[in-house]
Amino acid sequence: MHSFREAVEARDAAAIEALLADDVVFTSPVAFKPYTGKAMTAAILRGVMRVFEDFRYVREINDSNGHDHALLFEAGVAGKKVTGCDFLHVDDRGLIDDLMVMVRPLSGATALAEAMGAQFDRIRQEALDAGRTPEASA
């Protein structure tokens, strides 16, 4: 089982963040442009944990070289059932440098977009706060 799956299933935000490369690229199923950077990706994933209900992985597919993984999941968002997939690429250090999420059906993706939109000010602030050093926030 991939360590990202274990961290997500445990709802361990710190473990998830520790698996992300500093320059990770996150491609959202509901945003036009990808997001870059560990702080922003970790904040988005914390937001997702707040909006997904009854999240569970149902299947895992791994390539033979250990760099590419597909984790299929099911969850609920605002009463809508969502089926999706996390596509991960890990670098030579074992850190996730590319994470793309896809979801279906459209009604579920729309519910996810609305729920995440409501979270986005908090997500942005969490990412900004994570990027500050103790000296900068003093």
Rank of each mutant, 00 (worst) to 15 (best):
Ala43Leu: 06
Phe26Pro: 05
Phe73Tyr: 06
Ala43Gln: 12
Glu135Ser: 13
Ile61His: 12
Arg50Tyr: 01
Ser107Asn: 06
Met1Gly: 05
Ala43Cys: 10
Leu106Trp: 14
Asp63Gln: 05
Ala138Arg: 15
Ala21Val: 05
Arg104Thr: 11
Met116Asp: 12
Arg50Glu: 08
Arg46Gly: 11
Ser3Arg: 14
Phe120Pro: 00
Thr27Tyr: 00
Arg132Glu: 13
Arg93Tyr: 08
Glu17Ile: 00
Ala75Val: 04
Ala21Asp: 14
Ala75Pro: 06
Phe26Tyr: 10
Arg46Ile: 11
Leu99Phe: 04
Ala13Tyr: 09
Leu71Cys: 04
Lys80Cys: 02
Phe73Met: 00
Leu72Thr: 08
Leu128Phe: 14
Val25Leu: 11
Ala18Thr: 03
Thr83Trp: 12
Glu60Thr: 01
Val103Arg: 03
Thr27Ala: 07
Phe52Glu: 15
Gln125His: 07
Leu72Ile: 06
Ile96Lys: 00
Arg59Glu: 15
Arg50Asp: 02
Arg93Ser: 14
Glu17Leu: 01
Leu20Asp: 03
Phe32Ala: 14
Gly37Asp: 03
Asp92Lys: 10
Leu112Gly: 02
Val51His: 02
Asp12His: 08
Gly79His: 00
Glu17His: 00
Thr83Ser: 13
Leu19Ala: 11
Asp92Cys: 09
Gly117Gln: 06
Pro105Asn: 10
Ala70Glu: 15
Leu99Cys: 04
Val30Glu: 02
Gly66Glu: 11
Ala13Lys: 13
Glu9Asp: 15
Met1Cys: 08
Gln119Pro: 01
Arg46Trp: 10
Ala111Trp: 10
Lys33Cys: 12
Ala70Lys: 09
Val101Lys: 09
Leu19Arg: 08
Ala70Val: 06
Gly131Ile: 05
Ser107Ile: 01
Ala138Pro: 07
Pro29Asn: 04
Ala118Leu: 13
Asp121Thr: 09
Glu135Phe: 11
Gly47Asp: 11
Ala18Asp: 09
Asp91Pro: 03
Thr36Met: 11
Met100Lys: 14
Arg56Tyr: 09
Asp121Gly: 08
Ala127Asp: 12
Asn65Pro: 11
Ala118Glu: 14
Ala109His: 00
Pro134Lys: 09
Phe32Cys: 05
Ala15Lys: 11
Leu99Thr: 00
Ala18Asn: 05
Val90Lys: 08
Lys33Pro: 06
Leu88Trp: 05
Ala21Arg: 09
Ser3Val: 14
Leu45Phe: 13
Asp91Gln: 03
Glu17Asn: 03
Thr41Arg: 07
Ala14Asp: 07
Arg56Asn: 12
Ile44Tyr: 01
Ala14Leu: 07
Ala10Pro: 00
Leu45Gly: 03
Ser107Trp: 07
Ala111Phe: 08
His67Gln: 15
Val48Met: 08
Pro105Leu: 09
Asp63Met: 01
Asp129Cys: 04
Thr36Asn: 13
Phe120Val: 01
Glu74Ala: 02
Leu19Ser: 07
Leu72Val: 13
Asp12Val: 04
Val77Trp: 07
Val103Thr: 15
Thr110His: 13
Gly84Gln: 12
Ala136Arg: 14
Phe120Lys: 07
Ile96Phe: 01
His67Thr: 13
Arg5Asp: 13
Val103His: 08
Asp129Tyr: 09
Ala111Ser: 10
Lys81Pro: 11
Glu114Pro: 03
Met116Gly: 08
Arg46Asn: 14
Gln125Ser: 03
Gly108Cys: 00
Phe26Gly: 02
Ala15Leu: 03
Ala21Met: 10
Phe52Lys: 11
Arg56Leu: 11
Pro134Leu: 07
Gly79Ile: 00
Ala10Ile: 06
Leu88Val: 06
